[in-house]
């Protein structure tokens, strides 16, 4: 792994991006905009799954999701660029691994939901109390995304080995 990290950091792409002054701040700005899109749209749907705002038809609550996924896409692209530019800063950071863990958890949680409960969810009428499984999925998703944000923002401060 160490070899891969040092190789990546020495590549022309990594070096060129790292040495272009505006790339990092621009990616950061996009990364922050992307996170608000994701947390806004996913948070709304998660809260509905958890049983809040029950008068909202669940299919309607889900209609913001494509825009949340667009935010996620922005962040996967900019996040990958950050990693390419400074691989050693991330690969040896416990906070970064914690962040990746929660991204994977949120992703698996969403996939599990879509493949097993996804069809059933749309049959839930307005005002109906969601089953426990929906509440758990919503809660895991919401907490995971905030954990991703937490470990991302705390990255310079925790688990850097300094």
């Amino acid at each position: 792994m160490y070899g891969f990290i040092t190789w990546l950091e020495s590549t022309g792409v990594s070096t060129a991006l790292r040495n272009t002054t505006w790339v990092w701040p621009t990616c950061e700005s996009i990364h922050f905009i992307g996170l608000t899109m994701l947390i806004g749209a996913a948070g709304f749907f998660d809260l509905r799954l958890m049983g809040f705002m029950r008068r909202v038809p669940i299919a309607a609550a889900k209609s913001f999701m494509p825009y949340g996924i667009a935010g996620l896409a922005l962040n996967l692209v900019t996040g990958t660029l950050f990693f390419i530019m400074r691989p050693s800063m991330y690969a040896f950071s416990a906070a970064w691994w914690a962040k990746v863990f929660f991204i994977v958890l949120a992703g698996l949680n969403a996939m599990l939901f879509e493949t097993t409960l996804g069809a059933r969810v749309l049959t839930l009428g307005p005002g109906e109390a969601p089953p426990t499984s929906f509440r758990i999925v919503g809660c895991v998703s919401l907490l995971s995304w905030f954990a991703v944000l937490y470990f991302g923002r705390m990255l310079p401060y925790i688990g850097t080995g300094n």
Binding site: F32, I33, L35, T36, M37, I39, G40, A41, G43, F44, F64, Y67, F146, L149, Y150, R153, M154
Partner: peptide, 17 residues
Amino acid sequence: LTLHTVGLAIIVGSAFV
């Protein structure tokens, strides 16, 4: 600093929806 980012996500996330 992290609280400020959490707040940002809630404010702009809400405004986005």
